[in-house]
Every structure is written in structure tokens, then in C-alpha cells.
């Protein structure tokens, strides 16, 4: 090994002007914060899209697509085709309701719960904590990366599922439904619900990963709560994400047996409400991250 060399350009900041000097106190350097956010995003996007946990998410997103392709080849599919696009729309709503409460929910759990908990278990969280990045930006960067990965994956798979529901109508029937009927609008709404669902559930699981040593227990409890939502009284229904998401459905899914029906909330209130809910949870997550210490021994 040759001796350690010191490049001539490597000059300590104390010897000259530091180009990375902080902004004057009292001012907020939004440009710097934007670059830091991008710095976090580029690392986290890589983990969200090219990691083992994403394989599980991709499976959950694509398994229903595979099952629908197989279904399209069965005689039952031909019966649906006989019922026309109205029957196919009901079926799409029914399938989407199941897809939302299982695939989308579980994927949000996988993607978001490990954002901080995974770094703690791998003992690598100090990588971020040793940099001059505000913890709020760290929380936002991690959340956005997982949301982007989830949104792209589930918007795509939602679109595929919707299209496959109409495949038994034939290509001409599908084309008519999409471009001369309400199909394209419905497809966009379902994809939008998936994107909102990933973000809404994601905030909850991000927070659980920050507060709990074993957030999977919280995940199971929330899954149970969301699953029995149809059975809950009207007031309690409103304490769930699924209730607000259902108000967007272009075609109401068939109600479960013994379901208690609550008056749906206008989408004009639901979207800002859900976004406000996400902001509030992210603020709480930032507060928690700000108070975190690195003491891996405890975990």
C-alpha cells in the first residue's frame, strides 16, 4: 500500500472559504433543504424499488393480475361478458374492494413500517443522523420515496386489474367502455384511490415503525379494524382510512351481510381531509424522529 496522499485541492475549510458554509442565521435556505431532500430521496428510492421488500410488494401487486388473467380464460368470464359492461363494472368494484383491503394495505405495511425500523435493526440509521439534515426532511424524504414506489406500482397494477375485468367483453367492448363509456374515468379514479391509500396507510405504518419496537402487532390490529369496518357503527366507521377511500368508489361495491351503512362523505372533503391527516401524522413522526437517540443495544 502506498503512503496516504493529500491532494493539493483538499484544503480544510478553516484555511479558506468553505463553499458549503451555512446560510446566515435567521434565514431558511430552501434550496439547501431541497437538495438534502433529493439526497435522501435518491437513496431511499433505491431501497424502495430495488430491495427484497419490494419483491414482496410486487408479488402482492401482480398476484391479482395473474389470477385475473387465468379467470379471463374460464367459462365464468364468458357469462360476465354476457351481462355486458354493467355487470363487469360491479365485478371490478367488488374485486377492487378486496384488492385495496389486502394487497394495497399489506404493501403499505411492508414499504413503510421498515423505513426507520429497518435502519435501526440494520444498525445503519446513524448514516443519516451524522449528516446536517433536519429530521423533518429525513422523515419526508423516506416517506416520499416509499410513496412514489408504492404509487407507481399500485397505480399500474390497479389499471391492469381494471382492464382485465373487462377483457371478457373483447377488445372492441373494452375499447367502447373506455373511450365511449365511463371506463377511462373509473380507471383513473381507482388508480387515484390506490395512490391515496398507499399514502394514508403509509403514514400510519411509518409512525408505528418509529414508536413501536414490534410494529407488526400494530399492523395486524389495524388490519383487523379496517376489515371489520363494514360492521362498525357509523361513528366508528369514520375512524378508519377505508371508510374515506370508499367514498371515492365510482361504483359502490356490494355491501357485506349485516353491513351498517353510513352516509358517505363528499370527495371534496375527503381528499383534503386525508391529506391533512397525512400531514398531521408526518408532523408527529418528525417530532418523534427529532427525539430519537442512537442506542442500537436496546433494539
Amino acid at each position: 500500500m502506498s503512503g496516504l496522499s493529500v491532494p493539493e485541492t483538499a484544503q480544510h475549510p478553516s484555511l479558506g472559504q468553505d463553499p458549503r458554509a451555512e446560510p446566515q442565521t435567521g434565514s431558511t435556505d430552501w434550496g439547501m433543504m431541497g437538495r438534502q431532500l433529493w439526497g435522501v430521496l435518491r437513496i431511499e428510492l433505491r431501497y424502495s424499488l430495488f430491495s427484497r421488500r419490494f419483491l414482496a410488494v410486487a408479488f402482492l401487486a401482480l398476484a391479482p393480475v395473474g389470477l385475473l388473467i387465468l379467470w379471463a380464460l374460464t367459462p365464468v368470464a364468458k357469462e360476465i361478458a354476457g351481462g355486458g359492461s354493467t355487470q363487469a363494472m360491479s365485478m371490478a368494484a367488488w374485486i377492487y374492494a378486496g384488492y385495496l383491503s389486502t394487497s394495497v394495505f399489506l404493501s403499505a405495511l411492508i414499504l413503510f413500517m421498515s423505513l426507520f425500523r429497518g435502519d435501526i435493526l440494520q444498525r445503519s440509521l446513524h448514516y443519516y443522523f451524522l449528516s446536517p439534515v433536519r429530521r423533518q426532511i429525513l422523515v419526508l424524504g423516506k416517506f416520499l420515496a416509499a410513496w412514489i414506489a408504492g404509487a407507481v406500482t399500485f397505480a399500474t397494477s390497479t389499471a391492469l386489474i381494471y382492464l382485465l375485468c373487462f377483457l371478457p367483453l373483447g377488445l372492441s367492448g373494452l375499447s367502447r367502455h373506455l373511450f365511449q363509456g365511463p371506463g377511462l374515468g373509473h380507471l383513473m379514479i381507482y388508480a387515484g384511490i390506490s395512490v391515496l391509500a398507499i399514502g394514508g396507510y403509509g403514514c400510519i405504518f411509518l409512525l408505528a415503525g418509529l414508536f413501536l419496537r414490534n410494529p407488526v402487532v400494530a399492523g395486524v390490529l389495524i388490519f383487523g379494524w379496517e376489515s371489520i369496518n363494514f360492521f362498525l357503527p357509523a361513528l366508528l366507521k369514520k375512524l378508519s382510512v377505508i371508510f374515506y377511500l370508499q367514498s371515492f368508489y365510482p361504483v359502490p361495491p356490494p355491501q357485506e351481510l349485516f353491513a351498517i351503512v353510513a352516509e358517505p362523505i363528499s370527495p371534496w372533503l375527503t381528499v383534503p381531509g386525508l391529506l391533512l391527516f397525512m400531514v398531521a401524522l408526518l408532523a408527529l413522526a418528525s417530532w418523534r424522529a427529532q427525539r430519537m437517540e442512537i442506542n442500537y443495544g436496546e433494539d
Binding site: 433529493w38 439526497g39 437513496i43 446536517p132
Partner: peptide
């Protein structure tokens, strides 16, 4: 490099 990007430095620097 990623650590320095989290610092807020541009690519070249």
C-alpha cells in the same frame, strides 16, 4: 457520495 448529497452538496462537488 450519497452521504455528501444528503449534506446538500451538488453532484460535482
Amino acid at each position: 457520495y450519497s452521504f455528501l448529497r444528503v449534506h446538500g452538496l451538488a453532484h460535482t462537488e
